[in-house]
Design a protein around this nucleic acid. Structure first.
Length: 362
DNA sequence: AATTTCCCCAACCGCGAAGTT
DNA sequence: TAACTTCGCGGTTGGGGAAAT
């Protein structure tokens, strides 16, 4: 099953579209609709490949495209959906009327992702980045005191940790492994899911002075699985598909949004890997997830429902006197980068558990 | 004012899935 | 059922404008 070239590249124009080309494409689609993208450019008198035409139409010329900055609520939605869906930009875009997957992808990569990194949140896992925890001092402290420590209790953030990392860290402080040199020779590399994961673990087996102090982005690797889908909390891919799939005759997002999602999502689904809560508490997080999955219309934009809304759990511009209520306000909800940083810092509010005495590690 | 660096985003590329012959 | 075609998705690139020097 050979891969066919997307188009005959001979003589076909590439690069930015001119107004004239745009008009030709619009005129043709208004007259004939779009169907066969391969023959469309020829019929429309365009020296472009079909793929280019499709992209131009779907990402720019479509009449229902919403231009302009993303509102806070749109951003909230993107972050939430990304936490659930990962880099399923088309699925995310389907929940944001007027926004294209390309636009959302760009916005994520240029704004949200950077902001999350600045805030110390791993943009892949939506969890705080482990490299921000000074594991070296934690480990050396545990070794120094020769005490058997439960590393998960020590960190107080059991749910934050990659179980494999936890396992590895725990093994480091087990009695038979107290000698760090011994550890270096006995790291079971079979536990490492990939070279990426090895890189993630690398600091743990380095001597303390070699431990990196700079912040590095965690690799995409959770539960010994590096596939993007593994990041999402769905253990069952079908659940995810059910959640994000649209009917083939889908034409009106609002109609779709009014429909309940599959019950198995609202009743059975527990978003395990997301249980780090950048919203304040695990309790709230579950609430968010339940609502986000079952009350799609509220999730989208309706913050008037007191039972749900980021405003109820976030100190964000959403709770400011200026209401964020509908698509029509999408531009009004825009803030400055600083405001959004502040907003994101609220996403980062999490408490150090009482039993985690940081003095132990000083 | 000129040059360099940084950043954004429209567009491209390659791949896999779905559809067709 | 295999071969081929078309479509859609996600990752990446590079042109151009903005900001910094």
């Amino acid at each position: 099953m050979g891969r066919s070239p997307c188009c005959d590249k001979n003589g076909l124009k590439k690069g930015p579209w001119t107004q004239e080309e745009d008009q030709k494409l619009i005129d043709y689609i208004q007259k004939h609709g779009y169907g066969n993208w391969r023959t469309l450019p020829k019929n429309a008198g365009l020296q472009r490949c079909g793929k280019s035409c499709r992209l131009r139409w779907t990402n720019y010329l479509r009449p229902d495209i919403k231009r302009g900055k993303f509102s806070f609520e749109e951003e909230e939605t993107i972050i939430q959906l990304h936490g659930v869906l990962g880099n399923k930009w088309s699925a995310i875009a389907a929940r944001l009327p007027g926004r294209t997957d390309n636009e959302i992808k760009n916005y994520w990569n240029t704004h949200i992702r950077k902001r999350l990194l600045r805030m110390g949140i791993d943009p892949f896992t939506h969890s705080p980045r482990l490299d921000l925890l000074d594991l070296s001092s934690i480990l050396s402290s545990s070794l120094y005191h020769q005490s058997q420590m439960n590393i998960s209790r020590l960190l107080g953030v059991n749910s934050l940790l990659n179980p494999e990392l936890l396992k590895l860290a725990t093994s480091f402080v087990s009695p038979q492994n107290q000698n760090q040199k011994f550890l270096l020779n006995n790291v079971d590399h079979s536990q490492l899911c990939s070279s990426q994961l090895q890189n993630q673990y690398q600091p743990l087996v380095q001597s303390k002075q070699d431990l990196p102090t700079q912040v590095q982005e965690l690799p995409v690797c959770t539960s010994l699985n590096t596939s993007p889908s593994s990041i999402n909390p769905f253990s069952n891919e079908a659940q995810l598909v059910n959640m994000v799939q649209f009917p083939s005759n889908f034409s009106d997002l609002n109609d779709w949004q009014g429909n309940a999602l599959p019950s198995n999502l609202t009743e059975d689904y527990v978003p395990e890997p997301l249980n780090y809560d950048y919203y304040g508490s695990n309790r709230h997080h579950q609430t968010i997830m339940d609502h986000s999955l079952s009350e799609t219309s509220n999730f989208q934009s309706n913050n008037t429902n007191p039972s749900f809304g980021f405003a109820s759990v976030l100190s964000t511009p959403s709770s400011s006197p200026t209401p964020l209520n509908s698509n029509s306000t999408y531009n009004n909800g825009c803030g400055t980068e600083d405001e959004r940083d502040s907003y994101c810092s609220n996403l980062l509010n999490f408490e150090i558990p009482d039993f985690l005495d940081v003095n132990d590690f000083m």
